[in-house]
């Protein structure tokens, strides 16, 4: 069996002690695997992403990322772990409005270690924004902003990339462009967890899970991973 980048056991999240946003989810994501997460609103998709992204703590269960049990980490250790291992892509891009595309990418470097302008420039060139380095987010199209967001997620070479509805706010042409980039990331060996409502995006995943009322209600292996393993 391939080594797992994410292993969740009985992952549970309760709000106010009673509302189960996530109820005992067991999940494994292999290195280099693309996992799609689908489900209706309120099914627990974002909660799952928050927990795996170390943005929130589970109420119960274990969560191992890159071999570390993140449920035992202190708040400061969790922050450190997040900046070293997780790349985040958001539906609403979340770029700092007063920083240029280049500076938005450098921001992630700055929080990680040291800002390196040349490296950030290469990351933006990689997503096709070599000509838009010094533009503010307001001067970029939605697709371009999402590509800045992708470059920012990649800049610190994380073990795992989490994307929340990455094409949710994009038109068809930009959606295609972003999907191509996600394919490239996958092909380059990045593990991806992509939350989506869009079946077209879901179809790109190696494996798809469906959440409902905080539980995995269906799991669908779409294609074998490199090496022939089908990870459950």
């Amino acid at each position: 069996m391939m080594s797992a980048v994410v292993r969740a056991e009985g992952l549970t999240k309760r709000y106010n002690g009673r509302v189960h946003a996530l109820a005992g989810v067991d999940l494994t994501v292999a290195r280099g695997e693309w996992l799609g997460v689908m489900g209706p609103s309120g099914s627990g998709k974002t909660t799952l992403l928050n927990l795996i992204g170390c943005l929130d703590r589970p109420s119960a269960g274990r969560l191992l990322i890159a071999g570390d049990d993140v449920t035992t980490l202190s708040q400061a250790e969790l922050v450190r772990f997040r900046r070293n291992h997780i790349g985040l892509i958001f539906q609403q891009f979340h770029l700092i409005p007063y920083l240029t595309a280049l500076e938005n990418v450098m921001l992630a470097q700055y929080f990680h270690s040291l800002a390196d302008e040349a490296e950030a420039r290469v990351a933006l060139e990689r997503v096709g924004l070599g000509e838009r380095l010094h533009h503010l987010p307001a001067q970029l199209s939605g697709g371009e902003q999402q590509r800045v967001c992708i470059a920012r997620a990649l800049i610190n070479q994380p073990s795992l990339i989490l994307a929340d509805e990455p094409t949710g706010n994009l038109d068809q042409a930009n959606e295609e462009r972003v999907m191509d980039l996600l394919r490239e990331l996958h092909a380059a060996g990045h593990a991806l967890i992509v939350v989506t409502h869009d079946p077209a995006i879901g179809d790109l995943a190696d494996r798809l899970i469906y959440l409902d009322h905080g539980r995995v209600v269906r799991e669908q292996g779409l294609r074998p991973l490199a090496g022939g393993a089908l990870v459950r």
Partner: peptide, 16 residues
């Protein structure tokens, strides 16, 4: 608020 949340999500230490 969103900007601060983003910084923290990107791994910004509290002191930063």
């Amino acid at each position: 608020r969103a900007e601060i949340g983003l910084m923290k999500a990107l791994g910004a230490a509290e002191r930063r």
